[in-house]
Simulated assay, not measured.
Amino acid sequence: MPTCTPALVINDTAIRFTDDKLVNLTDFWKAGSGDRAKQPQKWLRTDAAQAFIAELGKATDVSLLKITRGRFGGTFAHWQIALAYAKYLSPEFHIHCNNIIRRFVEEELPAL
């Protein structure tokens, strides 16, 4: 099981990240809607999600997805996949997450 650290809070929900910076989509789902019809595993089966992940996989050699079961498990994904999932949950949630994730990622980047 990946080590998880709450790194962000969105809509009063802690968003966990793994040590290798994968975002917990289950936490995104809870923060964004909680609608059972939009759970991460259901979205991941859509053609749009599969196409996005395949294209992202061509552009990067980092881990894109990890799915763990159990009490502290969840669906963990690359931050770009998390933002695509946020868009699926709702436009408003997507914009909110874009702003938060952008600030979070920019703080991690070294100064040029």
Score class of each variant (00 low, 15 high):
Asn99Phe: 05
Leu65Met: 11
Phe28Trp: 11
Lys87Pro: 08
Asp19Asn: 06
Gly74Val: 00
Lys42Phe: 14
Ala86Asp: 00
Ala49Val: 12
Thr68Arg: 01
Gln50Leu: 14
Glu107Asn: 08
Val23Gly: 10
Gly57Asn: 07
Leu25Arg: 01
Lys30Glu: 13
His96Trp: 14
Cys4Pro: 03
Leu112Val: 12
Phe28Pro: 01
Lys58Asn: 05
Ala14Asn: 12
Gly57Trp: 04
Ala54Arg: 14
Ile101Gly: 09
Gln39Asp: 11
Val62Ala: 15
Thr60Ala: 12
Glu108Gly: 06
Leu64Gln: 03
Trp79Phe: 07
Ile101Ser: 05
Asn99Ala: 01
His96Cys: 07
Pro40Ala: 03
Ala59Gly: 12
Ala49Trp: 09
Lys58Arg: 14
Ile15Gln: 04
Ala86Val: 02
Asn99Val: 00
Val62Cys: 13
Asn11Pro: 11
Ala59Glu: 14
Trp79His: 13
Leu112Arg: 08
Leu112Ser: 14
Ala7Phe: 13
Lys38Cys: 03
Ala111Lys: 15
Lys66His: 12
Asp61Leu: 06
Leu56Asp: 04
Leu64Gly: 02
Phe28Arg: 00
Ala7Asp: 03
Ala86Glu: 00
Phe104Val: 01
Ile100Trp: 04
Lys38Asn: 07
Asp12His: 15
Thr75Val: 00
Asp35Ser: 11
Phe72Gln: 06
Lys30Arg: 15
Glu108Lys: 15
Leu83Ile: 03
Leu56Lys: 01
Ser33Ala: 11
Gly34Cys: 06
Ile53Gly: 09
Ala51Thr: 08
Pro2Tyr: 06
Pro6Ser: 02
Ile81Gln: 01
Phe17Val: 02
Ala31Asn: 07
His78Lys: 10
Ala37Leu: 15
Asp35Tyr: 09
Trp43Ile: 02
Ala49Tyr: 03
Asn24Phe: 05
Cys4Tyr: 02
Ala37Ser: 15
Gly73Lys: 01
Ala48Val: 11
Phe93Ala: 07
Lys58Phe: 13
Leu112Trp: 07
Gly34Phe: 06
Ser63His: 11
Lys42Gly: 13
Glu106Gly: 09
Phe76His: 05
Ala111Gln: 15
Asp27Gln: 08
Thr18Cys: 01
Thr26Gly: 09
Phe93Lys: 11
Pro2Ile: 00
Thr46Asp: 09
Thr46Tyr: 12
Ile101Thr: 11
Ala14Ser: 13
Ala86Ile: 05
Asn11Phe: 09
Glu107Cys: 07
Ile53Met: 04
Gly57Ser: 02
Trp29Pro: 02
Val105Ser: 09
Gly70Pro: 00
Leu22Cys: 08
Gly34Leu: 03
Arg71Ser: 12
Gln80Cys: 07
Thr68Pro: 05
Thr3His: 14
Phe104Gly: 04
Thr60His: 15
Thr13Met: 04
Glu92Ala: 15
Phe52Asn: 08
Lys42Ser: 13
Ile100Cys: 07
Ile100Asn: 01
Asp20Gln: 09
Ile15Trp: 00
Arg102Glu: 15
Pro40Tyr: 07
Val62Gly: 15
Ile53Phe: 06
Ala54Cys: 11
Thr18Val: 00
Pro6Arg: 03
Ala51Asn: 02
Trp29Asp: 06
Met1Ser: 11
Leu112Thr: 09
Glu106Asp: 14
Glu55Asn: 14
Val105Gly: 10
Lys66Tyr: 05
Thr18Phe: 05
